[in-house]
Amino acid sequence: MSQKEEYEAKIKAIAPTSPLFKNCLFAFLFGGGICAFGETFRHLLMRIGLESSDAFVQVSVTLIFLSAVLTGLGIYDNIAKIAGAGTLVPVTGFANAVVSPAIDTKSEGWVLGVGAKIFTVAGPVLLYGVLAGTVYGLIYYAVSLFGGGV
């Protein structure tokens, strides 16, 4: 065993671990709760005449708005302490990841602070989402070129 592994084993023996079951339960409840809220709202929107696809987008925008307000009021991070992945995985977590650096960096100015750093946390999601989409696009395009004639 290397010195590093030896020390890591020692750490493992004394360091407390997160309460996995409790954390997963809260993640499930909060994450599920946010999704159920979104679904309820979507049904309401469809009842007043929105098309299904528009209602999905509208729900996302509303959740992003609510997350921004809760982040601004300093509440979102307090919920996240309990909810963990339950407030990270829903689109509200993405919004929080954009809004929190914006508030945090306004002391450094509106252009080089907020402007430059607004994507410090959420940027990876956007980059890798677009990259994955492009890879799929290339494959889909190639398939449609060769498969199109069939």
Partner: peptide, 17 residues
Amino acid sequence: ERQFRQPLEYGSQRAPT
């Protein structure tokens, strides 16, 4: 927090250590 970790309003859980 700002310098070493993440924005103050960013929602996350701290590890027990």
